[in-house]
Computed example of a mutant assay.
Amino acid sequence: MQDPAADIAEVVYEIVRLIPAGRVSSYGAIARAVGMISGARMVGFLMGRCGAVEPKVPAHRVVNSSGLLTGKFHFGPGNEMQRLLEREGITVENDRIRDFKKLFWDPSEEIR
């Protein structure tokens, strides 16, 4: 028998893998896309645990609904999350994505 939590995690990871480089999504948008209306915290928890998951999950592309890098501590010391985003052409100022609304990728709209 399959573990339902593992199934949800894999669906979340698959959605995050679809976020294009140079774009970002939010914990809540991903939760809504998988049918978890109040699941933003669960998505955040899964992003914090995905470091060893294969294929890789670009968790750095998932931020809070205001564009804040609230999960940056999962990337270790320093500004690794910011560095990964900036390498994709995303500007981060004071731990917030500049032009968040313009760069926002909504899985409910993008995945058909």
Score class of each variant (00 low, 15 high):
108 S>Y: 07
84 L>T: 12
35 G>C: 11
23 R>Y: 07
45 F>C: 10
13 Y>N: 05
110 E>S: 11
69 L>A: 03
78 G>Y: 03
89 G>W: 05
39 G>K: 05
45 F>S: 14
41 R>C: 06
108 S>H: 08
41 R>A: 11
28 G>H: 02
10 E>D: 13
6 A>D: 12
4 P>T: 01
58 P>C: 07
58 P>K: 08
79 N>K: 12
68 L>V: 09
49 R>V: 02
112 R>G: 10
63 V>E: 13
67 G>V: 08
68 L>P: 01
60 H>P: 09
16 V>P: 00
95 D>T: 05
73 F>D: 13
24 V>W: 00
47 M>V: 00
79 N>A: 15
98 R>A: 02
49 R>I: 03
82 Q>M: 00
66 S>T: 09
99 D>T: 01
39 G>Y: 12
46 L>Q: 14
87 R>A: 11
86 E>G: 14
23 R>T: 01
55 P>H: 04
110 E>K: 14
70 T>L: 07
95 D>G: 01
70 T>N: 11
56 K>A: 15
4 P>K: 08
88 E>G: 00
52 A>K: 01
39 G>P: 10
102 K>L: 12
104 F>Y: 13
88 E>Q: 10
38 S>Q: 11
110 E>V: 03
32 R>A: 12
58 P>Q: 05
79 N>Y: 08
36 M>H: 06
13 Y>H: 03
67 G>N: 03
37 I>S: 13
108 S>F: 05
21 A>G: 07
66 S>N: 12
53 V>T: 15
50 C>P: 01
73 F>M: 05
